[in-house]
């Protein structure tokens, strides 16, 4: 478990997302016209169609919408890490995001548990946003 996983492929739409992750910051697009947050990054707002968008820092908190424990990885790199957990997180601000659930207690996590963003180093001096269980009593 000492080898870092591969760097994510990065699309030009999402430059600020990946640049921020390198600095342990979580940025999402927030529509200047309708005020809605959105994920995944896109040129037009998927709520209202506006092309006026700002990258802003949401709370980084949410709850687990669903999860699964992967026992057979898709590639050799991921197979070295099995079993690992994938979660869908409903962010407080609205969008849904898929990451791994990492950190203490992840193997006991359930739908509805509060989580918060954290970051994982990947190859090539990159990082990816991940989610960890929020400290107990820290309601999302």
């Amino acid at each position: 478990m000492t080898d870092l996983l591969p760097s994510p492929d990065m699309s030009p739409d999402a430059g600020p997302y990946w640049d921020a992750a390198k600095e342990n910051r979580f940025l999402l697009q927030n529509c200047d016209a309708c005020g809605e947050w959105r994920f995944v990054p896109s040129h037009l707002c998927t709520h209202c169609g506006s092309d006026k968008t700002s990258w802003k820092e949401p709370s980084g908190r949410g709850v687990i919408y669903s999860l699964t424990t992967v026992h057979r990885g898709p590639t050799a790199e991921f197979r070295a890490y099995t079993p690992y957990i994938i979660v869908f997180v409903d962010l407080v601000e609205g969008p849904r995001i898929m990451t791994n659930l990492i950190g203490e207690g992840a193997e006991h996590a359930a739908i509805g548990d509060a989580v918060e963003v954290c970051f994982e180093a990947r190859q090539g001096n990159t990082k990816v946003p991940q989610f960890c269980l929020a400290p107990k009593g820290d309601a999302a």
Binding site: D9, V40, T75, M98, T99, N100, V128
Partner: peptide, 9 residues
């Protein structure tokens, strides 16, 4: 870009 970096089947 936003799912495969996390190893889903």
């Amino acid at each position: 870009y936003f799912e495969n970096p996390y190893g889903p089947l």
